[in-house]
Amino acid sequence: MQESAQPALRANAGVGWTPFLFLLPFLFFLILFWLVPLVGGVKMSLQANGFGEAEYVGLNHYLILAEDERFFKAIRNSFVYTLASIVVIVPLSLWLAHLLRSTFRRLRPVLTFALLLPALTPPSVLAVLFLMVFHGKYGLLNQLIVLPLGQAPISWLKDQDFILAGLVLQTVWRWTGFMTFFILAGMEGIPRVYYEAARLATGSRWNHFWHVTLPQLRPVLLFVAVYLMVDGFSLFSGAYVLLGGSGGTADAGLLTITYVYQKAQFLEYGTASAISISLLPVMLAVMGAFLFLRRRIA
């Protein structure tokens, strides 16, 4: 998905207002249901907590947040959670896509579909399944991994050292198959001649992967990373069902969006909005990085 320089002859120069006619419905809904609420959020973050026409308190909420340890903990957790899921999911799904390409042709669609089943499941269902199957003293994670190593069973949801790891595992379980599907589609789009050319240079499969597959997959990998990032920061359902809207023991699993939810739950709408708004610079920085990378790829 890249925006390349538009050759002049393909574009339809000098058509006046026609493009805006096509953009009009999109822009209308964009302004009405995105821009207005976003500005509303900024305004709310400058007002006292509570309903209706509240008085302006300036940057008060932000100043309080600047000294709020839970806020920084939530931001930190969201970062760790998002980065960890990207770091685990991307290589794993690259490997799985490679395995899928190497299996029997007829099995490939069935196996791919089976792997991405969690992505089709509503997050609230996933969280329940994850909770009941993998978690807890008698959960499969303990029985298959921890107990055989001779360790005491881990209480994944209560032990503060493991809550975040549990959330990451849930995300990995949810998205790996789906990302594998995207990478597989990307791999099948790589022209065959590239490999034929590469084979002339070297017979090593690793070199083919490193010098042909990986560079060709850069747009897909960028898409996957951005998707996981947005999901990581705005995800709500998973953590909500797993931890019931709390941050878990010692807030070890408190994510930014959960914290926003908690503040809104206690009718502290001003504070809740201030948390959301203070994420915007982060998102814009990511956008800058994204555009920079995209230009380098194109």
Binding site: F33, M44, V230, I257, Y269, F290
Partner: peptide, 19 residues
């Protein structure tokens, strides 16, 4: 359009609701 991806409406669900 890219900003729209990075700043999903879930982030400001409450102002969206009140609007």
């Amino acid at each position: 359009a890219i900003a729209l991806i990075l700043i999903p409406r879930q982030l400001f669900a409450w102002p969206l609701f009140s609007w």
